[in-house]
């Protein structure tokens, strides 16, 4: 059984880490889709859990690679080639000015024009391997999840839930609150 955790909002991280580990412990495979890795830097996923970073996938898209080459890499290379020796300071200043006055603005415009590509990337991740269970783990992930299961080209995901523990599956070892417990402090 392959479980896809859609965690692009990067909240409820403790639950995502624990539930993905439970999937592996239950004999399944788990993929966690995050937007960027930075908010997850303090988390440790269980061995066998595949973590996919959308930002990394976006960087590998052809349009983005061309945009980066044209807007940033090529001008930087030219300016650094020209700006050697006594021209080094001038070149550095020109590079900074170019980046703030033109390249960054053009990059933002490019992102606006390109639109949100995450839904397309998520659909691709969800199809390979095909997910048996989709776990939607935060509010930001909900629109992507709705598109993933509602689109015409949507991969057929048999089961959708908001927590692996409440997926309607009952494999042994799945988390159950222990009735023999203390309640602690309710403040």
């Amino acid at each position: 059984m392959h479980v896809l955790f859609l965690s692009v909002g990067a909240v409820r991280r403790r639950a995502v880490v624990a539930e993905s580990a439970q999937v592996v412990a239950d004999g399944g495979t788990a993929t966690v889709v995050v937007d960027r890795m930075a908010p997850w830097s303090r988390e440790t996923f269980a061995a066998g859990v595949r973590v996919v970073e959308l930002a990394a996938l976006q960087r590998r898209m052809p349009a983005q690679r061309i945009e980066q080459a044209v807007l940033f890499k090529a001008p930087r290379k030219i300016l650094r080639t020209v700006g050697r020796g006594p021209l080094r300071g001038v070149s550095k200043r020109a590079e900074r000015a170019y980046q703030t006055r033109f390249a960054d603005r053009a990059h933002r415009a490019f992102l606006r024009l390109r639109g949100d590509t995450r839904a397309k990337l998520i659909a691709r991740v969800g199809a390979q391997p095909r997910a048996d269970v989709l776990v939607v783990t935060d509010p930001v992930a909900m629109p992507y999840a709705a598109r993933l299961i509602g689109g015409s080209a949507a991969p057929a995901i048999p089961r959708v839930c908001f927590s692996y523990d409440y997926a309607g599956l009952t494999p042994e070892g799945q988390y159950r609150p222990d009735p023999d417990f203390v309640q602690g402090d309710n403040q």
Binding site: P139, V140, I149, G168
Partner: peptide, 30 residues
């Protein structure tokens, strides 16, 4: 998020056994 949440609810609410023989429905509230 609200529209997506409502669309997902139709497929995402499962009754799961919990303590005392009760069933639990886990409902996130964005």
């Amino acid at each position: 998020v609200r529209e997506a949440h409502h669309a997902l609810l139709a497929r995402s609410l499962h009754r799961t056994p919990t303590v005392g023989g009760a069933d639990l429905v886990f409902l996130p509230v964005p």
